[in-house]
Design a protein around this nucleic acid. Structure first.
Lengths: 133, 133
DNA sequence: TTAGAATTGTTATAATATAACAGTATGTAA
DNA sequence: TTACATACTGTTATATTATAACAATTCTAA
């Protein structure tokens, strides 16, 4: 029907959902996203989850596993989400992507004794942020 | 009615569920656990989740966040689950707890630029294990 | 021995995620 | 420009993961 919005390589639904996540200061959950995009014609969970899956796959967003929530990638170092690290405040729930070259290199070169070669890692740090202290 | 089984500091349900997880070579999901303990009189999800919460809290088990599954702690270094690291095979789903003093020290002493002091971390490495290669 | 804390049992329901199927848009190569 | 493959969309239904709320029992420590 109408042209897809391919300017950024993203499809219409992907772009809508990425924009929402990108401008959110907080990680967003799938059903919060669904609620917020219903006015744009995205009506059902599979539409949201499909866009989320794709955005994760291409590294535009990351899933915070401990919270089942999604944040936009703020970091050029984590090419296609191979090496992610986050700082999570247990009080206000704020999540910050950690961009630390030394940390990233250290972990990327870490290999398991049992002969396993790692392709990817996800690290989540928990604490109380400056504001909440 | 009957005495609780406190020999190990665990209540009856906690002990039943810990035993099941501890002898499993694979991470177990909550509803898999539920199915497997119904013959022992644990009938409903809250009973399972309460035991899991407690076992996580006291460090007897860990939750693998990316899989919503639970493994017994095999590691004396992660006192009360403050510092956990896992190796996860993306092919066979095998999960191994990583016990590496250097890694643990490195991460435990890592602090965020933005003034956040971390109390806890969880790290999940992904790859293809030796067997699956 | 009794009060508080922890644990248990139970029903119902909330929150998170996917299966399956039919249709539409897009890119590309003949 | 047709036709094919691939990716994306829309939709209904359902599977999976997790918690709320309440009543009762058991444990522990004073």
């Amino acid at each position: 029907m109408t042209r897809m919005h391919k300017e950024n390589n993203l499809s219409k639904n992907q772009q809508i959902i990425f924009d929402l996540i990108d401008k959110s200061p907080e990680p967003l959950k799938a059903y919060t996203i669904l609620f917020n995009v219903q006015k744009k014609g995205i009506n059902a969970p599979p539409q949201v989850y499909r866009a989320l899956d794709k955005l994760v796959e291409i590294g535009k967003i990351h899933k915070i596993e401990s919270k089942n929530a999604f944040v936009a990638c703020k970091n050029s170092d984590c090419e296609i989400s191979k090496a992610t690290a986050f700082s999570i405040c247990e009080s206000c729930e704020m999540v910050d992507e950690i961009s630390d070259t030394k940390l990233s290199k250290y972990l990327s070169s870490f290999n398991h004794k049992k002969g396993m070669k790692f392709k990817r890692f996800n690290l989540e740090f928990f604490g109380i942020c400056k504001k909440c202290k």
